[in-house]
Amino acid sequence: STPQATQPVEFNHAINYVNKIKNRFQNQPEIYKAFLEILHTYQKEQRNLKEGLCPPGYKPLTEGEVYAQVAKLFQNQEDLLSEFGQFLPDA
């Protein structure tokens, strides 16, 4: 089965970005891992939300909260953070 019809340009951008982060934090794998965890949590919650698995009143991670967490992680890495912002809807 094909993955969701994502625009190839966005997909390529995402691949390049993840690769860049991986390289940047080669010597700090825990930062890279934390980044993956944040995205993983977000994705999981979005899926649960879509499938109606969240209890009423449950507040999943918003894009803004994801950004805030990543910002904390990427301190002093302004370029990575601003590039990350390009993936998010303008709040």
Binding site: T6, A14, K22, L39, Q43, F87
Partner: peptide, 27 residues
């Protein structure tokens, strides 16, 4: 060359989904 683990691929997928969402909410 890219040496991606399943977690890496999952991050790529999440990012591109976010980007798509962001584009949709643009107009």
């Amino acid at each position: 060359s890219y040496d991606f683990t399943p977690m890496d691929s999952s991050a790529v997928f999440t990012l591109s989904t976010m980007a798509k969402k962001s584009k949709e909410s643009d107009s």
